[in-house]
Design a protein around this nucleic acid. Structure first.
Length: 728
DNA sequence: TTTTGATAACTTTTT
DNA sequence: GTTATCAAAA
């Protein structure tokens, strides 16, 4: 971090570290030494006698928690591991694990991730008879998850739906109720439940509540601008007694409203907590003035915003560069060229990051970088624990550990194939339901299932046997041995191994399984005696994309803008800055949504220390189709354009060698002194509609029509002969 | 029942 | 351009 300040803190940081008078809000702009303040504050609390195990520090990712521990350990050795440093979700899981029976949960309850959630919802939709809604499973998942974030359980949601009759809400209420029943009977929780059930536990169980209110002497919450209602309630409840609550955040970096975060939590902190003290950190130690000015100019366009400005003592630095490329392949080639350039000038690959709005964009960069033989790492796209083979064997482990977990069990009923096909699965489930058995118990008594085929019966018996053996194994084996047993006894390992000759991907799968075993061995070493498989499974479910990548490896970092939050790099490329992509959905986005996109762009830009490059492509291929996009409004807002009229500042030296790669004949038409020659991708001006870009043609000669995307978001198809088009 | 092949649906962002 | 889903063939 800021080596410029040595070990000292500036006066505001000092104040934030030392304040002891109750609720404290630290508004920490990008790069103002936020983590440093939290770390020093915790160290100082410990110094002044607060027991480390009575401090709760909530972070946004597991990686951030780990990082925090490491830095605290350097200041007050031996104490860091005692601190409750977790993400909200991991903290909630810890609480629920400890008070499982009070919370009405199985002690080995399963944490279902987003993919599990979607599967269960799809199944629920089928059961409720909404077969044609199946493709909307994602929508239901998000509506239900948002409800949970707002602490609306199925019952409350149903009441809420009744007060405002609306058929969609009623349907959701029905699906929600049924979905929840499934989770409850499987003894599982989804992400939302972790928070909701913790909030309920604290609310309804007086003993638990007062115990923790007394226990946690200090509560600190990082990235407070991204907390949702459930997290807010948990925080407020825990801090109610001692009132030693310190929240840190930056409203300009709130980028998770779509996930239920309420920016008002931070904006209204002072009215929520009487006599709260606010400290603002505005001195930036990360970026050059050129970078800060550009980012500041962008965020200035948000209306929903508290005034704040960052300043720095750093020298001006290199100009921010903007480059338009013809398509995403050229964009990737450009990035590679500049990366090579940076490396030639002494940069290390690990100093360089490429950000994009959507995961799908990583592809072209990966191709270009490997072509150039430059090592890179993609953070968070296809996560290890989301791979099919990994999820399958984990499901065996979950099913063996928690006999009620029919969700995990039904995932692996017939993987590898053992004669339990679609109809057999159906028969088993109906039998289980009618007989009042769990799916697992039903497997043990297949002879009683009337409609089950002979092969289904054989398969069921076989699987029941596997699970019984595994449950017995698990009682005596270490986590890695247990997982190995799951792979062997289920026949999964052999199944993949046998496929190696025919399936080119099988070898990789086998490698992944081996890697999982290695991860478990590492986990055992780290945890020592009390290494426990269900603990491992929980950690896995709560892993974030940002977790577990090694930042010290010499490789270019590729990641989405969301994952970049909290990180910093000497050189940053923010790519795909186009209307419709970043901001996404430019046309039909609400003002709030555009403001969130703008904050996202601000976050991306402020990650850069020394060099910042912004790129956009005139045309971009998506699902095989090419789309033409205008440069993002954020580029214009950054005021980096070298246009005659604009204020002259940080310019690309080369005036404008726009690389136009389209080899397409110019179209011509007769028309007074107006524009006569038009070209795809060309910027034009229309007296009524303003500036726009030509994206398509049809017809020829007198009937030549042009399709233009205008900056105001409108698209028009005009007859070239009549349209008053002028050069932009 | 399982495998294969066709087709449709999809992409924001993630704890 | 890929992955999930569904229908037909083995």
């Amino acid at each position: 971090m800021p080596s410029s300040v040595g070990t000292g803190l500036n006066p505001e940081q000092q104040q934030a570290v030392e304040y002891r008078g109750g609720p404290l809000l630290v508004i920490a702009g990008a790069g103002t030494g936020k983590t440093r303040v939290i770390v020093h504050r915790i160290a100082s609390l410990i110094d002044s006698g607060v027991p480390a195990n009575r401090i709760l520090a909530v972070t946004f990712t597991n990686k951030a928690a780990e990082e925090m521990r490491k830095r605290i350990d350097a200041l007050v050795p031996g104490q860091a591991s005692k601190i409750w440093a977790h993400t909200f979700h991991a903290f909630a899981a810890r609480m629920l694990r400890k008070h499982a029976s009070a919370a009405g949960l199985h002690p080995h309850f399963t944490v279902y991730d987003a993919a599990d959630q979607k599967r269960i919802i799809t199944e629920t939709l089928k059961e409720v008879g909404l077969v044609n809604e199946k493709s909307k499973a994602g929508l239901y998942v998000s509506v239900i998850s948002r409800a949970k974030d707002d602490l609306l359980d199925a019952e409350s949601y149903a009441i809420h739906a009744m007060t405002q009759p609306d058929s969609f809400r009623e349907t959701v209420a029905k699906v929600y109720t049924r979905y929840q029943k499934k989770l409850d009977s499987a003894g599982g929780v989804d992400f939302g439940d972790l928070l909701l059930k913790t909030a309920h536990l604290l609310k309804n169980d007086e003993r638990v509540r007062s115990y923790y209110q007394e226990f946690f002497r200090e509560v600190l919450v990082d990235e407070y601008q991204d907390t949702n209602h459930a997290q807010y309630v948990i925080t407020k409840t825990l801090a109610a007694k001692h009132r030693n609550l310190c929240v840190v955040g930056d409203p300009d970096q709130s980028i998770y409203a779509w996930r239920g975060a309420h920016i008002r939590n931070i904006l209204e902190f002072e009215s929520d907590f009487k006599n709260a003290k606010t400290v603002k950190l505005e001195q930036n130690y990360r970026s050059t003035p050129n970078i800060l000015n550009a980012a500041g100019a962008v965020i200035l366009n948000n209306r929903q915003r508290h005034a704040k400005s960052l300043w720095t003592e750093a020298p001006e630095g290199d100009p921010v560069e903007v480059e338009e490329l013809s398509d995403e392949r050229q964009e990737a080639k450009y990035v590679v060229r500049r990366v090579v350039d940076l490396v030639d000038h002494g940069a290390s690959l690990k100093d360089i990051a490429v950000f994009y709005r959507t995961n799908a964009q990583s592809r072209s960069f990966e191709e270009a970088l490997s072509l150039a033989q430059l090592p890179y790492r993609v953070v968070g796209s296809v996560r290890f624990y989301e791979r099919k083979e990994i999820k399958d064997v984990l499901s065996y482990a979950r099913a063996a550990l928690n006999p009620a977990d029919s969700v995990s069990l039904s995932r692996v009923l017939n993987v590898p194939a053992r004669g339990i096909g679609k109809s057999a699965e159906e028969a088993l489930k109906i039998f289980a339901r009618d007989a009042g058995l769990t799916l697992r118990d039903a497997l043990s008594h297949p002879e009683a299932a009337a409609t089950l085929s002979p092969s289904g019966r054989r398969g069921a018996r076989e699987l029941a046997h596997v699970l019984d053996r595994l449950s017995a194994d698990f009682a005596v084996l270490s986590p890695s041995e247990a997982m190995n047993a799951a792979m062997q006894r289920s026949g999964y390992w052999d199944w993949i191994e046998n496929a190696v000759e025919t399936d080119p991907e099988a070898a990789g799968r086998l490698g992944n399984l081996q890697e999982l075993l290695n991860a478990l061995k590492e986990f055992e070493e780290a945890q020592g005696e009390d290494a426990d498989l269900s603990r491992f499974l929980e950690e896995v479910a709560l892993q974030s994309g940002a977790d577990g990548y090694d930042a010290s490896q010499p490789a270019v970092t590729l990641m989405t803008v969301h994952l970049a939050k909290g990180l910093e790099f000497p050189a940053v490329f923010v790519t795909g800055l186009e209307e419709g992509l970043f901001p996404i959905q430019a046309g039909n986005a609400s003002a709030e949504e555009v403001e969130e996109e703008r904050r996202l762009c601000y976050v991306a830009m402020t990650r850069a220390e020394k060099r910042l490059f912004l790129t956009h492509a005139a045309s971009r291929r998506l699902f095989g189709r090419a789309y033409s996009n205008l440069p993002s409004r954020f580029i214009l807002e950054a005021r980096l354009f070298s246009r005659e009229e604009g204020p002259k500042r940080e310019l690309d030296e080369s005036p404008e060698p726009r690389t136009q790669e389209f080899v397409e004949p110019d179209r011509t038409f007769e028309q007074g002194d107006r524009l006569r020659k038009i070209k795809r991708g060309m910027l034009v001006r229309h007296p009524e509609f303003g500036e726009g870009k030509i994206v398509d043609f049809s017809g020829a000669g007198e009937a030549l029509k042009v399709t233009i995307h205008f900056r105001n978001g409108k698209t028009a198809k005009l007859l070239a002969r009549f349209a008053p088009l002028f050069p932009a």
